[in-house]
Amino acid sequence: MKSLRTHESIDYKMQLLLATFISCLLLGNLLGSKRIEIFGIVTSVGFFEYPLAFLITDIVVEVKGKEATKIFVNAGFLSLCIAFFFVSLSTGLSPSSTYYDNEAYTSVFSNSLRLIAGSLTAFFISQRYDIWVFSFLKHKTKDRYLWFRTNISTIVSQLIDSIIFMFLAFYRVTPEVNAVYILRMILPLWILKVGFSLLDTPLVYLGVRWLASENEKPGP
């Protein structure tokens, strides 16, 4: 009976993490067309959601392994494909004569379409790389040095994600957003992501201990 309760508890935790993971991906894309400044660095408001998504995959791959984490990545990819389809459908349908905000609606969500398309590519490549690097380092370190593994995998993966996403999502969205402008956005943005990755290291430990409770203990 205790074993059954433990299994149900772990499954419930995985469901919560999966729901949070997918929510971060969808919100990051649907809201991400707005650009803001953080410490003088221009970025998308989607910046807030994606570090959490990488944090979740690091927690899952540490406790449940590479194959379980691929389910998260595949589910996230599918959710973005579904979002792309329905955003395309919604913006393409002719509005009712009683709906007066179609121009604004189309403008906002057409930008989201480009963000989702860019995110689909960046997400799939960077997350697959993140899982591979984390698993490789986990094997090489014999399950030790979680702080090292999570930061190295996330830092490199975030750079890959930033380069692919920024060019696909924002290149020539306005005339001044050329290749040089994008590159100037990527470097400080990546440095900012590195800072957030280092800061959320304690959260990785907490998340691993929470998911691994009554199952297995995380490495030192």
Rank of each mutant, 00 (worst) to 15 (best):
I164P: 13
A169D: 11
I125F: 15
L31V: 06
I191S: 13
T150P: 08
T57P: 12
T141E: 09
L199Q: 04
N215H: 15
T43G: 00
N102V: 01
Y145E: 08
E214G: 01
T154R: 04
F54E: 06
F39P: 07
M14D: 10
L113S: 12
L187W: 11
S33C: 06
L113I: 15
L17V: 05
Y205P: 07
V63L: 11
L113W: 05
E49V: 01
T43M: 02
Y145S: 03
E62N: 05
I163Q: 01
I22M: 07
N151G: 10
K70Q: 08
I131P: 05
L25P: 12
I116K: 15
E216G: 05
S44V: 01
A117R: 15
S9R: 13
Y145V: 01
A117N: 09
I155W: 12
L120F: 01
S162R: 01
V42M: 03
Q127V: 11
L80E: 08
D11W: 12
S126Y: 08
D161C: 05
I38C: 00
K142I: 10
F72N: 06
I131G: 10
Y50A: 00
R209K: 15
F148Q: 04
W147Y: 04
T98C: 03
F39M: 09
A53C: 05
L203G: 02
A75P: 09
R144P: 08
K217L: 09
V173G: 04
L206K: 14
L93G: 04
S153W: 04
G28L: 04
L25M: 15
F109H: 07
F84C: 04
V180P: 01
V42D: 02
L31C: 07
A53E: 03
W210V: 08
T6V: 15
P175T: 12
T154D: 13
D58W: 00
S9A: 12
V204L: 03
T121G: 04
K13Y: 10
F54T: 08
I131W: 07
I56D: 05
N29Y: 14
L89A: 07
V133W: 03
K2D: 14
S3T: 10
I38F: 03
P220I: 06
E8K: 12
N29P: 06
A104N: 15
A83W: 05
